[in-house]
Design a protein around this nucleic acid. Structure first.
Length: 725
DNA sequence: GAGCACTGC
């Protein structure tokens, strides 16, 4: 029978021609989908299902989402935007996009369903899993797209998992996102910059694209906020995590590290087998705590089981990060107490990394948060109390494999009254220059009336506009310039983007390309606790009188000369992983430069080359300049008049009069990092508006600038001289 | 002479 060879359950459904309520409803019902799922032929490939498909399907049917299939189709069919609140373990990430696939099947031929994730790893693993569930080859019908790795096939892929940042990039080139029929934003509660902007864009786009469906998926708590923001119906799905018993301390703990160590040892001595996860705030704290726990546990290994303490933070090489998945040690004697694993981790274990087997969570209630102060344009990393959402997320880590316990090292009263409901969204904590430039590129002009999920402070917006205007990315009327339009294309901070775009004028675009890539990755310099002196010596080899930017360039070039060799990198106390990433980014940027016809150039003469690089950097970083204020090492930042010092890791041997810096951080005192010497004449020449002397306070700095201006007028600078030769 | 929580394009 031919009927048996085709999966007919969805074939008869036709899209409705008449838009209803202003959008196009879909008509697939849950019972049709159930029948289609049970059919022996795969409706997407018209091939018979594999036996594996059936096994997985049985497991899928047990997921909580499956019980909500009728409700899902009912609500989804009748609404353009819906919100789904799903607890961890509900199966929403893998199942909801598949439901939509069935709903889309008869519609929107050639269009794609997108499902965004905040992180690359989860994007890939979700796509992999779903391709198995749907019995298709990964990269064909179901694919994924993340930076540096696109596993999709145009014309074939109809379900695409992608990072939120990737979709936001696509929106810049196609503001109507016209290739998508449905967009699913997953993990919206994490409030990443990209997800927040996408929510605003999609809310506006829904009115202009009646055929577009939008699903916002979130864990508990924030879903209500999204429901209000979109005025959309909400579907609640319960998870299937195990219960976690929460304990509080009777009194506040004065020293949370000490209390945490004490609690871990107490669990080890008194509680049933099961691994422990302790949350601390940073690398140093974690390494110290690990040493102390290991030391104290070694005192009685025969009475209690052997204990392995494993540190976990992002700058740890991935090989060492994988240690958290090793099984705990076996008992010392055949009938002795079993071994136990203690993982001491930063926030990385809260959302990014999931470790099975954790039964106990110790939560002191603190994290490090990056805080941006728009008024003085400074970042600082502060140890702050976590939010209730974070505390719940941390506790949930104990219930993944069986019922668990969470020990909070604060009182229940403090939990209720002192902790904020949710963490401050990234949007409100960082510089908005890049975001605003992206919005201009999409065509958003009125930032005040823009429909933000949470409106940023007017001051933060003003700072962003001011920076973009000084860089020449927007004109004084607030329109995007041609320069700004190209700058927005590059995945770089606007300052760096500007430097890269103008670098051919200084004939050093090859070197600036490398520097831009190196500034886009985390710190490359390793400094292991027991090899500090050696590491410092290795680093000193690269320090350069001309500044830290040149040092980064030299490190990269040496890495290439050594054929990207991992052991070379490690023996020079450099992170091979970070260098490899810089290499990837450099390739991507180079390809983009080619596309925009930005020529790759270099100057043969070393001295002139170095001069040109420093001048080019001035074109983007003229707002991040400090002037030497005295002989004590104090610098004053231009216009903001903040007293800062060169960070001790800076390679400069002398203290030049004028420096540009890449970042300004507040730790024990205000520091500037990644610093390069510049000349006042360059600032006056490349940023005449910003360095209009009438806008400067009287003082030493203004005097020095005035002196430089006199010298500079009528005398061509070095770059010009060179050009004229 | 101090320290980089965590993502993403």
């Amino acid at each position: 029978m031919t009927d048996n060879k085709k999966n007919p359950y969805l074939a008869h459904i036709r899209p409705s021609k008449e838009p209803l309520h202003g959008f196009i409803p879909r008509r697939v019902t849950a019972s049709q989908v159930r029948k289609a799922l049970e059919h022996e032929v795969n409706p997407f490939t018209q091939e018979p299902h594999t036996p594996q498909y059936r096994d997985i399907l049985e497991a899928r049917k047990k997921l909580p989402v499956f019980l909500h299939m009728d409700e899902f189709f009912k609500v989804f069919n009748e609404n353009q935007i819906i919100i789904i609140e799903g607890e961890p373990g509900s199966g929403k990430t893998t199942q909801i996009p598949q439901f939509v696939v069935y709903s889309d099947l008869p519609h929107n031929k050639g269009k794609i369903i997108a499902c965004t994730q905040p992180r690359r790893i989860t994007t890939v693993s979700a796509a992999k899993r779903v391709s198995e569930e749907m019995d298709v080859e990964l990269g064909r019908e179901v694919g994924y797209s993340i930076r540096f790795d696109d596993m999709t096939e145009p014309g074939t892929t109809f379900l695409k998992y992608m990072t939120d940042g990737k979709l936001l990039r696509e929106a810049m080139n196609d503001p109507k996102l016209s290739c998508y029929s449905t967009i699913i934003l997953d993990e919206a509660h994490q409030r990443t910059l990209a997800t927040d902007i996408l929510m605003s864009i999609l809310k506006g786009l829904a009115k202009r694209r009646p055929d577009l469906k939008i699903i916002v998926m979130s864990a508990t708590l924030d879903a209500l906020k999204f429901q209000k923001y979109f005025s959309a119906p909400l579907i609640k799905i319960h998870g299937c995590a195990h219960p976690v018993e929460v304990f509080y301390t009777q009194e506040p703990e004065p020293d949370y590290v000490e209390a945490a160590i004490r609690t871990v040892l107490m669990i080890h001595r008194a509680e049933e087998p099961g691994d422990i996860l302790l949350f601390l705030t940073g690398e140093q704290e974690i390494e110290d705590a690990c040493r102390q726990i290991q030391l104290e546990a070694a005192l009685d290994p025969n009475f209690f089981g052997p204990l392995t303490c494993i540190p976990l933070y992002s700058s740890l090489p991935s090989q060492q990060q994988k240690r958290v998945f090793d099984p705990p040690l076996p008992p010392k004697t055949p009938n002795g107490p079993p071994g136990r694993k203690v993982i001491v981790s930063t926030n990385i274990a809260e959302t990014s990394l999931t470790i099975d087997g954790i039964v106990y969570v110790v939560d002191p209630g603190f994290e490090k948060q990056n805080v941006y102060h728009p008024r003085i344009r400074v970042n600082s990393l502060l140890v702050t109390p976590i939010s209730k959402v974070s505390a719940k997320q941390r506790a949930g880590r104990a219930g993944r494999t069986r019922p668990g316990k969470c020990f909070r090292l604060y009182t229940e009263e403090d939990f209720i009254s002192e902790l904020e409901e949710e963490s401050v969204p990234e949007m409100l904590r960082c510089s908005l220059a890049g975001t605003v430039l992206g919005l201009f590129k999409i065509g958003v002009k009125d930032l005040v009336r823009f429909d933000w999920v949470d409106s940023p402070a007017p001051e933060a917006l003003l700072r962003a506009l001011e920076l973009l205007n000084h860089l020449g990315a927007i004109d004084t009327d607030g329109n995007l310039t041609a320069l700004g339009s190209i700058m927005a294309e590059f995945p770089l901070d606007p300052q760096l983007s500007k430097v890269l775009v103008v670098s051919p004028e200084f004939r050093c675009s090859d070197e600036i390309l490398t520097i831009a890539a190196m500034l886009s990755v985390p710190n490359v310099w390793l400094r292991p606790n027991n090899h500090r002196k050696k590491a410092d010596a290795a680093r000193a080899f690269y320090t350069n009188v001309d500044g830290d930017h040149m040092a980064l360039l030299n490190v990269y070039n040496n890495y290439i000369q050594n054929q990207l060799d991992v052991s070379w990198a490690e023996s020079h106390y450099l992170s091979a992983e970070v260098l490899a990433e810089a290499h990837n980014i450099r390739e991507e940027l180079m390809w983009m430069m080619e596309r925009f016809e930005i020529e790759l150039m270099s100057i043969a003469d070393e001295k002139k080359r170095c001069l040109a690089i420093r001048q080019a950097l001035c074109c983007g970083f003229f707002m991040q300049v400090a002037y030497k204020g005295d002989e004590m090492g104090n610098y004053i930042t231009v216009k903001d008049n903040q007293v800062v010092q060169l960070h001790p890791c800076c390679g400069l041997r002398t203290q030049p009069q004028w420096v540009i810096f890449n970042d300004f951080i507040l730790t024990t005192r205000p520091y500037i990092r990644t610093v390069t010497e510049v000349r006042a004449e360059w600032l006056l020449e490349y940023a005449p508006v910003y360095y209009d002397l009438t806008t400067f306070q009287d003082g030493k700095m203004k005097k020095a600038l005035r002196k430089a201006a006199k010298k500079y007028i009528g005398r061509p600078n070095d770059a010009d001289t060179e050009e004229h030769r």
